Amino acid sequence: MTPEQVRLVQDSFAKVRPIAGTAADLFYDRLFEIAPRVRDLFPGDMTEQKQKLMAMLGLAVANLNRPDTVVPALQDLGRKHAAYGAQDSHYAPVGAALLWTLEQGLGPDFTPEVREAWAETYALVAGVMKQAAAGAA
């Protein structure tokens, strides 16, 4: 990622943070709409899960310039997701739901450049998680 992409992701996430609860609702509603089979991987009460999502996104975004901080957390998350039954094929709809959620939350501030920066961020995050999951298998 370029320094400009890091700045775009961090600046746009700062605009999402005040609506974190709504963003988490939008994300999971969209995910379960486009990938209904993954619903069974989650608890019935999504309150804690939604908080975890926003916390992990916050950690990843804040540390985009410090891979030594974020990579171990993402590797651990990837191994946990694998233990819960997550598969490589689940990462694409998660990414789609994330980009859709950001588009809804940011409105006109979700420019093509911001979209591309987030897509790159998610590709990196998913790549680290999938690699760790594969190593745990």
Rank of each mutant, 00 (worst) to 15 (best):
M1W: 04
P3F: 09
P3M: 06
E4I: 07
Q5A: 15
V6R: 13
R7A: 15
L8N: 03
V9L: 05
Q10N: 09
D11Q: 13
F13P: 03
A14G: 08
A14L: 09
K15R: 15
I19R: 14
A23T: 08
A24N: 07
D25G: 11
F27E: 04
F27W: 06
Y28G: 10
L31T: 05
E33A: 15
E33P: 01
A35C: 08
R37W: 09
R37L: 08
V38E: 06
V38Q: 05
R39L: 04
D45F: 03
M46S: 04
E48P: 03
L53G: 00
L57V: 01
G58D: 02
L59M: 02
A60V: 08
A60G: 01
A60T: 03
N63T: 02
N63P: 03
D68H: 01
T69M: 01
P72E: 02
A73L: 01
L74K: 01
D76P: 00
L77F: 01
G78V: 04
G85W: 06
G85Q: 08
G85V: 07
A86K: 02
S89R: 14
S89L: 09
H90S: 05
H90M: 11
P93W: 12
G95N: 12
G95P: 10
A96V: 15
L98G: 13
L99C: 14
G107E: 14
F110Q: 12
P112Q: 12
V114G: 12
V114F: 11
E116L: 15
A119H: 10
E120M: 10
E120L: 11
T121F: 10
L124P: 00
A126D: 09
G127A: 10
V128F: 06
K130T: 12
K130W: 03
Q131P: 03
A132Q: 06
A133P: 04
A134T: 10
A134P: 00
A134L: 09
G135Q: 12
G135D: 11
A137I: 06
A137E: 09
